[in-house]
Simulated scan of single mutants.
Amino acid sequence: MFVKTKIVLTIVYVMILAGILASSSGVSRSIFSERLRARFDESASGQEVSERLPPPGPDMHNIQEDFQSTILMVNGALLIVAAILSYGLAGLTLRPIRSAYQRQRRFLGDASHELRTPLAILQTGLESQLRRNKDTKEEKKIKSHLEEVYRMTRLVEDLLQLSYFAERNINIPNKEDVQLVPLLRETSERFIELAIKNDITIDCFINTDAGVTVLGDKQMLSQAIANVLKNAVCHNKSGGSVEIRLSKVRSQAVIEIKDTGTGMNAEDLAHVFDRFYRAEKSRFRGTGGSGLGLSIAYAVICAHCGHIDIQSVPDKGTRVVITLPVSSAS
C-alpha cells in the first residue's frame, strides 16, 4: 500500500518539476531568440552594404538549436536527479504515517489476541449458567448476554484475520492447487441451515465436470467466499434466493454470487470494502455483522492475484463477481 503511494507521490513531484522546467525553458528560449535576432540585425545593419555579411538566418538557427539541445540535456539531467530525490522525499513524507499505521495495526492485533481469553471465559461461564438455570427470566437474560459475547468473539476473530494478513503483507505462505467446484459446494452447504431459517433458497449452477483449479490457500479462499455468501443470505428478503455460478473465461476462473436482497445505493457501494463500514447500521447487529467481512474477502482475493467486483441495485439485489487466475492444473 505504502509503496504504491510512494510511487504516486514521486510521479506527482516529478510532474510538478517537469511543468516548472518546461515553462522556464519556453520563456528562456523565447527571450534568448529575441535577443539573438536583435543582435544579428544590429550587427548586419552596422556594416557597409558591400561588406555586409551573408544573411545571419542559418547561423542564428544553429545557435538556437544548440541552445535548445543544451536546455533539454540540462532539464533531462535535472529530472533524473529530481526523480531520485523525490522518491526519497516521498519516503520521508510517508514515514510518520507508516509508523502510525504499523502501531495501530499492532495494537489491533495485540488487543484482539488479549480479548480472546476473557471472552472465552465469559462464554464458558454463561453457557454453564444457562444449563443450570431454570428461571425463564434469567434464561432470557443469559441468552441475551451470550449473543453479545458471540458477536464480540466474531469481531475479535475478524480483527485477528485482518492483522494476520497485514503482518504478512497479505502473502500466502503455503500455496496449493485448490479445486473450486468442491470448495464452492462445501462452503455453500455451511449456509443451508441459515438459509432455511431465513426462508432463502441457495442454488448452485456448477458443472461437476468442470475442473477449475486455482493456486492458493484453500482455507483463506473458503473464508472469502463464505463472507460473501453470508451477506447474500443475511441481507436477503424472505422468499428470496442466492445463485452461485462458476465458469472459466480464458485463463480466469469466474465465481458469481447473486442475491435478490435489499441491495445498496451508489454511496454505500463506494465504501463496501472499507473496514467497519456498514451500509445499514441497524441490520448488522441483528445478523452479527462486524463490517469486516467484505474487507477480509477483498484482502484474500487480492492476495491470490484476483479481483472482486460488486454491483448492486437498491431493493433488487447484489451481484458479486470474483475472478481468480487458474493454475496450470486446470
Rank of each mutant, 00 (worst) to 15 (best):
Q47S: 06
Y101D: 15
G216D: 08
M1D: 14
L221K: 01
L17S: 03
R106L: 15
M15Q: 07
I196W: 09
Y277V: 10
V178L: 09
R132M: 14
I255P: 02
A210S: 12
V74D: 00
V242F: 02
T187M: 01
N265S: 05
Y298D: 15
E189F: 06
T213Y: 12
L294S: 05
G293C: 05
I206Y: 01
V228I: 15
I7Y: 05
A22W: 14
V272L: 09
A329N: 09
S128L: 13
G19L: 08
G109M: 09
A120F: 08
F107H: 07
V313N: 02
V74G: 00
S69L: 13
N171K: 12
R154Y: 12
L155T: 14
P54Y: 04
L229R: 01
I206N: 00
L9H: 02
V254E: 09
H61K: 02
D259E: 08
G211P: 01
R52P: 04
F107I: 11
Y101R: 06
L78A: 15
I16M: 07
L294V: 10
C204R: 07
M264G: 01
S24T: 15
R106F: 12
L215S: 12
L269H: 03
F276W: 08
R35C: 01
D158C: 07
I11C: 12
S128D: 12
E51A: 13
D309R: 10
D158T: 10
S99W: 15
M1N: 11
L79K: 00
T187G: 02
A232M: 03
M15L: 15
V300S: 04
D268Y: 01
S30F: 15
V326E: 02
E65H: 02
E186S: 11
S282E: 15
V249Y: 01
S30Q: 09
E267F: 04
R185P: 05
G293T: 09
R250E: 12
I310M: 11
I257P: 02
Q223F: 06
T201V: 13
S188A: 15
D41C: 03
I244P: 05
S328T: 14
R151N: 12
C302N: 12
F165L: 14
I80Y: 05
N236K: 02
P325E: 06
S222F: 01
D59L: 14
Y87R: 04
P58R: 00
L78P: 04
K140G: 01
V326M: 03
C204N: 14
P55M: 00
T213R: 00
D41T: 13
A226E: 11
N231W: 02
G293A: 11
A303F: 07
L194E: 14
N236V: 11
V3A: 08
K281C: 03
A38F: 09
L194T: 13
G76I: 10
V181T: 15
L269K: 06
G306M: 07
I97R: 05
R103D: 12
I196A: 07
A297I: 10
R154W: 11
L246N: 04
R103F: 12
S238R: 10
I7H: 03
I296A: 00
E65Q: 07
E34L: 13
E186M: 09
S25G: 13
T187D: 03
A195V: 14
P54W: 04
P54K: 00
C305V: 09
N198I: 06
A226Y: 02
V320F: 00
K230T: 10
A18Y: 12
V242P: 08
G26M: 07
N265K: 00
